[in-house]
Simulated assay, not measured.
Amino acid sequence: MVNRPHLVYFADPMCSWCWGFAPVIKAIRAEFADRLPIRLVLGGLRPGTTKPMDGAAKAGMRSHWDHVHTASGQMFDHKFFDRPVFIYDTEPACRAVVLARRDSMDLALDMLDAVHHAFYAENQDVTSTAVLAKIYASIDGDEAMFRNIFSDPELIAETRQDFYISQQTGVTGFPTLIAGTGADAAFSLVTQGYQGPQKILPALTTWWQRTEAEAVSP
């Protein structure tokens, strides 16, 4: 994938702005398909968090959700805020997407979208292994395999490597989308933060056309 035009998408399954950006990723996949594959890197928004959310944290999150809904139209289940205790550890959800990525990048993107939807639109606890296994099964993954592998140290290390890549790349927020033409070529920033499809798709089309023209020019 890295030796052809492609995108790299830095995201987290429990990032509300990434949920807002989910329709944009769907639109990119529909518009460009295999012409412009997407490499997914899990960012690690709050991996390893152990402290339960307090009232202030919930209030801040509610405000973020309202902003995302206004900007993107994505729906949120506010019954989440009725949970008496919730530990916002994003590592398990990231690890679940990394596991799906072992099968294919398309399955990883499907898993990311499914976890987003389960958490934000359905108030499912995506820090739970059992919940994540069911979500994996819902996208035609092997639930038994998921449960057997999910706690494997190599998978945990692979997930942490994604977090390291995000940090070393200088990504400071999600969603971040960059475009590149090959392993040794510089990347172009498409967006750091949410932008709607009306801005992203024309920008990508222009970049793609320029890249194709440069590839065939003498």
Rank of each mutant, 00 (worst) to 15 (best):
R4P: 00
P5F: 01
L7G: 00
V8A: 09
F10A: 04
P13D: 01
P13L: 06
A22D: 10
K26P: 02
F32Q: 05
A33E: 10
L36D: 02
P37Y: 05
I38N: 01
R39H: 14
P52S: 03
M53G: 02
D54N: 15
A56K: 13
A57T: 03
K58C: 09
K58Y: 09
V68W: 01
V68Y: 03
V68G: 02
H78Y: 13
K79C: 14
K79G: 15
F80Q: 06
I87K: 03
I87D: 04
Y88S: 05
T90V: 13
A93V: 09
R101E: 06
R102M: 13
L107P: 10
L107W: 12
A108N: 12
H116P: 12
D125L: 10
D125P: 07
V126A: 08
T129A: 14
A133T: 07
A137N: 08
D140W: 12
M145L: 15
I149E: 15
I149K: 14
E158N: 11
S166G: 11
Q168L: 09
T172W: 12
F174Y: 08
I178T: 06
V190E: 00
G193Q: 00
Y194K: 03
Q195K: 07
I200Q: 00
I200K: 02
P202S: 05
L204C: 00
W207C: 02
E212A: 08
E214S: 11
S217E: 10
